[in-house]
Computed example of a mutant assay.
Amino acid sequence: MESRSKRNIQQFNGDRYSTWKFRIRSLLEELQLLTVIDEEPPPRPDNEWIKKNILAKGTIVDYLGDTFLSFARGSSTAKSIMAELDKVYERRSLATQLALRKQLLNMKLQPDVTLFEHFTIR
């Protein structure tokens, strides 16, 4: 595998996840490991699938910053690492963002409600 500097893939540090993901997927595709990420693991993995998964996990971990290694620690597959990262960092649809913004705006503290009630009733 070539060095990170030649590939221009920075370690993921919490910023620009979609760009990082695109570059990682391109690298995994080049290494012929993308099937490990895109498909469900077989019920009884053969040696080839196990080797591909180990290499894909190692590649992803190489490009994760130290503070983001917790996403990989408990995962047994490269697919599960990417799924966990997607859950946290992938942008949601505009409709979801607007609904969350409306919900946040409606959470304002009313003058006749105590702070305790505001946080416990909702």
Rank of each mutant, 00 (worst) to 15 (best):
I9R: 08
H118E: 03
K21A: 06
N106H: 04
M1W: 02
R7W: 00
W49H: 14
A99C: 08
A72V: 04
M107P: 00
I60M: 01
F119E: 00
K108W: 05
I81Q: 08
E39W: 01
D66I: 07
Q11V: 11
N13I: 09
N53Y: 04
N8T: 03
S5V: 13
S80R: 04
H118T: 04
D15Y: 05
L64I: 03
N13A: 11
V61L: 05
N106V: 00
N13F: 01
I121S: 12
L33S: 06
P45M: 11
P42G: 10
P42V: 12
R44M: 07
L104I: 05
H118A: 03
T59C: 13
L33C: 13
N47Y: 02
V61A: 06
G65A: 02
F116I: 10
K108I: 08
V113T: 14
I81R: 06
Q11H: 03
F71D: 01
Q110G: 10
K87G: 13
F12M: 06
D15G: 02
R16T: 01
M1N: 05
P111Q: 10
E40L: 12
L104E: 14
I81T: 10
P42N: 10
S5Y: 09
I81E: 04
D112E: 11
S93N: 07
S76P: 00
N13W: 00
G65C: 02
Q10G: 01
I60N: 02
L34Q: 07
N53R: 09
V61K: 12
K79D: 00
D86W: 09
S80H: 11
F116D: 08
E40V: 05
K87F: 10
S26T: 14
R92I: 10
P111M: 03
